[in-house]
Design a binder for these strands. Structure first.
Lengths: 139, 139
DNA sequence: CTAGTTAATTAGCAATGCTAACGAAGTATA
DNA sequence: TATACTTCGTTAGCATTGCTAATTAACTAG
């Protein structure tokens, strides 16, 4: 169990380090791409909600959103019910960039999974589903 | 294949985000802990080798090593064969901190893997090994 | 109406990634 | 041997991304 936990951690670190390089080809950093992804799939939300979804503090999200807005990828809009809140939504340009980046990332990853046999790929697929369940229940 | 790649990426991101908080309890950042881990398990090596192992450019590794050295966790030493090289090795303090942090992280992770059945855990273990092979051959 | 709470921002620190430019050391070649 | 090239690590300087503390604006309770 401990060995699996340790290796899992190490593998996750190194996998992401490699993928990150492909991601930066979009011209945006990982935090911005991840936040943008949440907005595209989750729809419009307040800055605070976005910060919570990304497990990040509000000041950090303020800066991420500012960067995305400067690139024309998201828009800030006033909340009609509570003037303290700021609604954030992805622009169509943001949606397009996100989908493009996602496609490139997936292709890159998939390309390196091609060395695997059918059985190995199936095992990996099952493991990912198991992991998703673990993460879902994780507080 | 693409779906597995996509989910694998997402799972890796969310797994690390959760573990990161436990890790920072050691007082060192993730890049330093990861480099230290390589040194503890791989033994003494040059700065360039360490940078390559961590998939990072030499200037970045210079700064990581400087930070670790300031904390007394690693030592720089001259290379007897090539004076351009700098050998880096973990100090006993570094080894201790790394093992302590590792223990905490693994326990934290393992605690969340306890919800799995024996079969699921075995699948996860196989998948991690498969992933390690993929990463090893990844250019 | 005043006091407290909440949402977002600003300011400022630290860690991590990069490229460009440099010096020191090793290697190869005329 | 002397000159030119290459390699290794560092320095300098930039951008991103995490944090806490303090501020401003707006809402809420008493």
């Amino acid at each position: 169990m401990e060995q699996i936990a340790d290796r899992l951690h190490s593998a996750a670190i190194h996998l992401l380090r490699r993928v990150r390089k492909r991601d930066t080809a979009t011209g945006e950093g990982p935090a911005r791409l991840s936040a943008l992804s949440v907005l595209v799939f989750g729809g419009q939300m307040t800055l605070g909600q976005l910060a919570a979804a990304e497990q990040v503090k509000p000041p950090t999200m303020t800066r991420i959103v500012t960067g995305l807005e400067r690139g024309g990828l998201v828009k800030r809009a006033a909340d009609s019910e509570d003037a303290r809140r700021v609604q954030i939504r992805a622009t169509s340009k943001g949606v397009r960039l996100m989908q493009r980046g996602r496609k490139a990332r997936i292709e890159y990853l998939a390309q390196h999974l091609e060395m695997l046999t059918e059985d190995e790929l199936a095992t990996l697929g099952q493991a990912v589903e198991i992991l998703q369940r673990v993460l879902q229940r994780w507080t």
